[in-house]
């Protein structure tokens, strides 16, 4: 008879035990300080040029605006700047013009929203099936107004809106002095700005639609959804991040888009009816030469828009669905 015993087969050696058992250590010792710096530094070095440009062109002027807003100064280099503390802010908040211009800005934003969201969505959905060369031609047509310089566009519109010989009055059969009547001046500014930006918005929406996987619409159709149900339940919800982006752009930039038109067509009039926040700021600084007041207004708008932008981005993030 042969005697014996069962022996457990040893598992593969693990590295921690190997080190304890005195085998060669494969993990290097902690690196010297400069080595660590060399390892950490590259991303910051890559960022450096961009950061320098941002500081020089954005953050430094911003800081200077803050400083300027506490002085009284008429923009003439030879006159001294007088420190007035928060005086400019008190003056600004006590003018009735401010409240009125905020309200007009809101009107401009609401008036331009249909041009940046409503019309583009409708146009992009309706023309999705345009294919081939027709698609290129059609896109170029829609985008063309964006390429017209705002001041040149304004000159042409001034001519079209002319109360006596303008084409608009002739086509509508009306007799309105569009740019010199309090009610219609603001409307004209909104429509002309909308005409400028609508092509860009259509392109953004078209790109957003193209980014949606067509399988979703196909699946919904097989699941029994009619064309309008697919649009309402699948396409529009999946498009919502794009729409949120457009709303954000409109809210933050509408008043800026109107500036060249206001300056060319109405100069803020008649009787201030087209003076929105940006135009007011510009008037303070470069008409009244009140640099401190303009800077204070700039600071207030800056803070106000930060709050609005934060709210809207939070909303946009909530709406976006990770499509995978």
């Amino acid at each position: 008879m042969v005697s014996g015993a069962f022996v457990e087969v040893a598992p593969p050696v693990r590295s921690r035990e190997a080190r304890a058992a005195g085998m060669p250590d494969t993990v290097p010792a902690s690196p010297a300080l400069w080595q660590r710096v060399r390892r950490i530094a590259p991303p910051y070095l890559y960022l450096l040029p961009a950061v320098v440009l941002l500081v020089v062109w954005t953050y430094q002027p911003l800081a200077q605006t803050f400083v300027l807003s506490t002085y009284s100064w008429n923009l003439v280099p030879s006159t001294p700047m007088v420190d007035v503390g928060l005086g400019n802010y008190e003056r600004l908040l006590s003018t009735p013009e401010l409240g009125r211009s905020v309200w007009r800005t809101v009107v401009v934003i609401l008036g331009i929203l249909p041009f940046t969201v409503g019309i583009p969505v409708a146009v992009a959905l309706l023309t999705r099936r345009v294919r081939g060369r027709a698609q290129g031609v059609y896109r170029a047509l829609v985008f063309a107004p964006m390429l017209v310089a705002p001041v040149a566009g304004a000159a042409v519109w001034q001519w079209l809106l002319d109360p006596s010989a303008g084409a608009v009055n002739r086509v509508l059969g009306t007799d309105v002095n569009w740019l010199n009547t309090a009610g219609t001046a603001q409307l004209s500014i909104i429509v002309i700005t909308g005409w400028h930006v609508v092509g860009f918005a259509v392109l953004v929406v078209t790109a957003g639609l193209a980014g949606i996987n067509p399988d979703y619409a196909a699946a919904a159709q097989v699941d029994g959804a009619s064309r309008s149900q697919v649009t309402r339940w699948i396409t529009l919800p999946l498009l919502s991040p794009t729409l949120a982006f457009l709303v954000l752009m409109t809210v933050l930039l509408s008043a800026q888009w109107t500036f060249p038109l206001i300056d060319t067509l109405t100069q803020g009039g008649p009787v201030g009816s087209t003076t929105n926040l940006y135009y007011l700021l510009w008037e303070y600084g470069f008409r009244s030469h009140d640099a401190g007041l303009a800077a204070a207004a700039g600071v207030l708008f800056f803070l106000g828009f930060i709050v609005v932008a934060a709210l809207l981005t939070r909303l946009a993030e909530r709406l976006s669905h990770h499509d995978d």
């Binding site: 996987n213 399988d215 979703y216 196909a218 699946a219 919904a220 097989v222 699941d223 339940w233 699948i234 919800p237 999946l238 669905h321 990770h322 499509d323 995978d324």
Partner: peptide, 15 residues
Amino acid sequence: RDVAMVFQSYALYPH
């Protein structure tokens, strides 16, 4: 058409 389809990508509505 009275058919149901399972897509290769599943096409689950992400929202």
